[in-house]
Simulated assay, not measured.
Amino acid sequence: MNVIGIIGAMPIEINHIKENINIIEEKEYAGFKFYIGKKENIKIVLTSCSIGKVNAASCTQILIDRFEVTHIINTGIAGSLNKDVKICDIVISDNVTHHDVRKEQMKRWFPFKEYFESDKFLIETAIKAYKKIDSNKFNYHVGRIVSGEAFISDCNLRDLIIKEHSPHCVEMEGSAIGHVACINNIPFLIIRSISDNADDNSTNYIDFEKIAANNSAILVLNILNILDES
């Protein structure tokens, strides 16, 4: 049986999923709460890792070691770094990387990768899941997602990240989740819905935070249904 680990940083990013799956057990490790659910053909372990790459990496390794997850999906919100990616749109990762670590350092030292590739099957499943959403009021995009230990709300830093990495969006956890999944040979996917434009006005993200979080969560629920059916 496949065991799907689902990670959100903040409770708002997993609440809609939690309300729509059957939770049969709760466990806690290292301060992280894990909600264990089950469908007919898959087991689900849902958790909130809190903000930042260290928290995300720690939580991901626990999912792998304690729950033996076979796949990992990260859901949540992000800031757009691409003119075609609008507020409330969905970004499905084809790869992830750290924007606050030098490319040369990543390539020269373990795990010797400039970026971490998302699982192709999960990407295809996410696209199928998007097409099952009743009202497509937002678009989806497949592209690079970057992460770092800072909330991006400065146009100069935003422009520098775009120049260096050409990403679709930026957040604070996805690359760490992808990094840990990769070195453990666990297929992963990062899904983000856009709450702001990572610029001088990005502190207004709260206006779209819940809508964006729910858009991402709806897509994840559809993915789970497809995986369960298959």
Rank of each mutant, 00 (worst) to 15 (best):
Y115G: 05
S135T: 14
V3M: 10
C49I: 08
D200W: 01
L81R: 06
I7M: 13
K53R: 07
Y115M: 14
C59E: 05
G174V: 00
I152R: 00
R102Y: 15
N185E: 14
I90K: 03
F208Y: 15
G148I: 08
C88P: 02
H141V: 03
I190V: 15
S153Q: 12
N139G: 11
C169R: 00
Q61G: 09
N82R: 01
K27A: 10
K103F: 15
I161A: 02
I162V: 14
W109A: 10
M10S: 01
G178C: 08
I12R: 09
I72C: 08
L122F: 10
S58Y: 13
D65M: 05
N136H: 11
A150E: 12
C155Y: 00
N55E: 03
I190Q: 01
I226Q: 07
D228G: 11
N225P: 00
L157H: 00
D154V: 04
I218F: 13
I191C: 08
S202Q: 00
K131Q: 09
F208E: 04
S153M: 07
G8N: 06
G76V: 01
R102K: 15
S50W: 15
I177M: 07
N139L: 15
M106I: 05
A181W: 14
R66G: 03
I64Y: 12
N74R: 07
G8M: 06
A126V: 01
D94P: 00
S80C: 00
E19A: 03
K39Y: 15
K43Q: 12
L224K: 02
N55R: 10
G143W: 11
I17S: 00
C155R: 00
L81I: 05
I183P: 10
I73F: 07
E124A: 11
I90L: 15
K27L: 06
N95F: 14
I190A: 03
E171P: 03
R158Q: 01
E104Q: 12
A150G: 06
G148Q: 01
V91K: 03
I226Y: 04
I162M: 07
E25M: 11
S50Y: 15
G8R: 07
S153D: 11
D84F: 10
C169S: 02
K86Y: 12
D199W: 02
E209H: 10
